Structures are given as C-alpha cells and as structure tokens.
Computed example of a mutant assay.
Amino acid sequence: MVNYWRGVWGFVDLSGITLRSAGLTTAISTSVLVISRGLCNSPAPPLLTISDLGREDYFKITTMYEIQPCPSLRFYMDSCFSVVFIIGFVIAQWRGLWTLMDLLLASDDAFRSAWLSVVAGNILTIFLFIIQWPVMYLARQMRRVPQTKVKSIALLVIEDLLTLFGTVASVLVWRGCWYLYDQCLIVDDTELSLWVSHGAAVVIGLAILHYQIFIHAGLLKDGQVIHSGESTFFNTKFITNFIHHAVNANTKTLAKNQQNKGALYVEEENSLITENMTNTTSLNTKDAVRKM
C-alpha cells in the first residue's frame, strides 16, 4: 500500500507543484470519485478507526462491487477496479489537497504551517463529530419519506458533503503531524527519526489493538453509510469497541460456564442413575443367591 501511494503520488507530482496542478488534480479526482460512488473511501484517521477485536473477517478485504472471491474474470476485474481506479483517485485527491495546503497555508513558515494544519484539522474534526448526529437524524427522517429519485440524490449529496469535509480534515491532520515530526523528532538524524516514528507507530497500533487501521482494508460505496441506520456518520468508536468486546467476551464466558455446569449436572445425574441401577442389580442378585 505504501509503495502504491508513493508511486501514484510521485506520478501526479510530475504535473508540477503549482496551484493550477493541485486544483485540477483535486477537482478531477473528486469528480471521478463522486461519479463512481467511491468518495466515501477518502477519509482517514482521526475520522476512522478499525478495531482488531472480535473480527472474524480480519483478512477479508471488500471490493467496490463486493464480488465473492473466486477464480473468475469478474472478481479480478472488480479487484483491479477497486485498487487501481478507486484507490488511485483517492491518492490523487489527497495529493491535490495536500499540495494546495502547502501552497496556501503559511507557505513561508514550515513550522507555523504545520501547527496551523494540525489545529485546523482537529477543529474541523470536532465540528464534524458534533454535527454528525443531527445529520444522521435528518437522514433517518428523510428515509421515512416514500422513495423518490430526489430523496435518493439528496441523501447522497449529504453523505458526499460530509465525506468531503472529512477528507479535508484528515489531510490537514496528517499533513500537520507529518511536518511536525520532520521538524521536531530527532532532527539531527533523519534515518533514526524515521525508524523511531515507524517503530512507535507499529508498537502503539498493536498495543491498542487497532493495527488494521494502517492498511486499506476494503472499500465502501457511497450511500451505504447514510442508509445504514447508524446514529453516527464517522466510524470512530474506539472506546466503544473495547466495551463491546469485553461485554461480548463476558457473555460468551458466562454462557459457556452455564453450558458446562449443565453438562456436569447431566453427567452427575446419569452417574447417580447408573450407580442406583448397579446397586439395585447387585441387591437383586444377592436375593436370588440367598433364595437358592
């Protein structure tokens, strides 16, 4: 995934690091993603969390059209379309937004630009977290209206707008953190700084059981989130994931213990019945011997 991002990003950079190039890249890639209904794959942390807990489909990666894995041309075409086309334009969109921020956000002061990016990204993220509940409530009310083309388009527009702002927030946060690490984390030894950054990310990702967040684990199609019935738009249930996992694990343990107790009770009851039958048979045998 890193190689693919680096390659596509580098190819787009060949068009030039200018406002015109960045603007066209952002506009074209966003338009293509909207038309292909793949825009919802653009946001990233902090607006997205993927827990490693309780996942039976950990190694299952969904494609755009959700064709089941099989040795068929349709599956291979779906996979190629998902990776090359959708993810490719997501990378181009990120590159365009990133370059626009480089050129417009305090371009004469890298340190100030990085801090502005982090602050702006987090403010926008908090704002999106706040408005997602009323937006999803509005979507639920709209879904109760009889199905019409206007309603479907309106819901899709709402989702795309939230997604687009979420993408901007994600790029702002990533860009700011990236540049701050460059300027603050072991600046005298670039190689050591990179190793420390990489190692810390791996350890923390494994420790908090959210390592899958580092990879692109499948795709969604625009319209799935707004029609999902969830009360939140962005999947950021970090603490909730741990609570649900703990509750589910405790429930399974209790059920297993009760099942084991039930099996033990049945086994003890069968043992008592067998013992009684043995004793009865023994007494009958003794009585028969005495009579003889």
Rank of each mutant, 00 (worst) to 15 (best):
D188W: 08
P69T: 05
Y4I: 01
L264H: 10
I239Y: 06
S15V: 13
I126H: 07
L39H: 05
F129D: 00
T240S: 09
Y4T: 00
N276G: 04
L53P: 02
E268R: 15
P45D: 00
F89K: 00
G218F: 03
R55I: 02
T25L: 06
E56W: 12
M64Q: 08
V171F: 02
S197P: 01
M277K: 15
H210Q: 10
V203L: 12
L33S: 03
N284G: 13
T232Y: 05
V135F: 07
D13R: 14
L192Y: 07
T163I: 04
Q224F: 04
H245G: 04
D160M: 08
D108R: 12
N248S: 14
G96A: 06
L161Q: 09
K252H: 11
G88K: 03
S152W: 03
L283Q: 12
L194S: 09
N122W: 15
L138G: 05
I243Q: 09
N122P: 05
K60L: 10
I131T: 03
R6K: 14
S228R: 03
I273P: 00
Y76I: 14
Y58Q: 08
A201V: 11
W98V: 01
H210R: 06
M142L: 15
T125D: 01
G10T: 11
L220H: 05
R74V: 11
A201I: 09
I28P: 07
T285D: 13
T167V: 06
A139K: 01
S231G: 08
P134S: 08
T240M: 08
G88S: 04
T63Q: 01
I86C: 01
S29R: 01
Q212S: 13
I35P: 00
L283S: 10
G262V: 03
A201S: 13
I273Q: 09
T274R: 14
V196N: 03
